[in-house]
């Protein structure tokens, strides 16, 4: 799914440790792979917006 839609020439895998963060614009193509390891993974995802006009309705959340 979604194969070929995005330019993946700059595709980057980011090894992360607890406490590390990646900040990105929501229009940046992003995704994740399967967990093939024997360890569980948790990821906190938060969406922030800047000041400006108030939204009528907050957007529904999506996957990481």
């Amino acid at each position: 799914m979604n194969e070929g839609i995005f330019d993946e020439t700059h595709r980057t895998l980011v090894p992360m440790q607890p406490g590390d963060a990646v900040l990105f614009h929501p229009l940046l193509a992003h995704g994740s792979g399967q967990n093939r390891s024997d360890r569980p993974r948790r990821l906190v995802t938060m969406w922030f917006r800047g000041g400006g006009p108030a939204l009528i309705k907050e957007p529904a959340e999506e996957g990481p």
Partner: peptide, 23 residues
């Protein structure tokens, strides 16, 4: 900045599925 959404995403060992590239 104002936080609109917070969540915890899980990838269970051997069971956690991927998420296709998207915006």
């Amino acid at each position: 900045p104002k936080c609109l959404v917070d969540q915890v995403n899980f990838k269970l060992p051997r069971l956690g599925t991927g998420f296709p590239f998207h915006q």
